[in-house]
Design a protein around this nucleic acid. Sequence first.
DNA 1: CTAGGATCCTGTCAGC
DNA 2: TGCTGACAGGATCCTA
Length: 313
Amino acid sequence: MPELPEVETIRRGLENFILGQKILEVQIFSDKSFLGPSELIIGQKITKLHRRGKALLVDLSNQTSLMIHLRMTGQLIFRRFGSENGAELTKMIKSGHFHSKLAGQNTFAGGHPTNSFFTELPNSQTRVQIKLETGFLFFNDQRKFGFIKVLPTAEIAQDTFIKKLAKEPWQLDPTDFYHTLQRHPSANIKALLLDQSIIAGIGNIYADEALFDAAIDPRSRAAALSQDQSKQLLLSACKVMDASIDSGGSTMATYLRADGSKGDYLEKFAQVFRRENLACQRCGDTIIKIRVAGRGTHLCPNCQKLITEPKDD
DNA sequence: CTAGGATCCTGTCAGC
DNA sequence: TGCTGACAGGATCCTA
């Protein structure tokens, strides 16, 4: 799914369009995509958008909140009334005035990149449609793993997902991070980076990218990392996510080129993710793709050092 | 307690 | 062309 930088980009982008608006109608096309009483949010005003890890939180005027998790294939797309057919984006693309972001005057899109960003909505993957005062917010999700959940604002912290979340990478103390890794005697480092109760917000892209940046092989034994190595890894995670947020998230910036062809952040910034069989930009060796922690994993076998036992220094 | 695998669901793509 | 299996930017549940 969209990982932390994508969700943060969505939060910032959506804020410009929906903050302060009243929810007028909710249409649910897939029951498993919307949890809780939808009638509770009708007529309520959107007062705040925030984020914890990969979860987007939308506070409403009646002490109720929406927790939105996009999981693997979720998308949030806002279209002002009259723009539901996506014609504006198509026009921008054709006239060459399409810049780097999927946000125009009348539309904003973020999440798993598909054609739904610029085609007619709702479509077969639309699970929830929320009518606001100036337009529609569409929740699309191919695989139905994601969801929108209604809950009292005061109970967000007790939510089973939120409750287990570790600190955000920037808030995590390097020494604490090191000690957490030490507590997992046989796990590999990639599995722990993906574990939201160890560090919040990292997914498959940024796990691979952070490990490349820190020059650590994803198969390394987490508990074998030295203090310095775990600190470097934490810094690398912050660095790659900061860079992504700055560029508008991997699914946003340059996803579409002016000619309508697809391109994206990955092409521009990723050093290893989806670059198997290509040359490492650091050493020229060939990037490989293997399976680690049950996930497709990309690495440079030359640059990234396999750490199995702590160095005694 | 940890660690690994199966599972939810739909779509796409490589290989026959 | 049509089928089949593998795989997918996530998290949870089940098992040993």
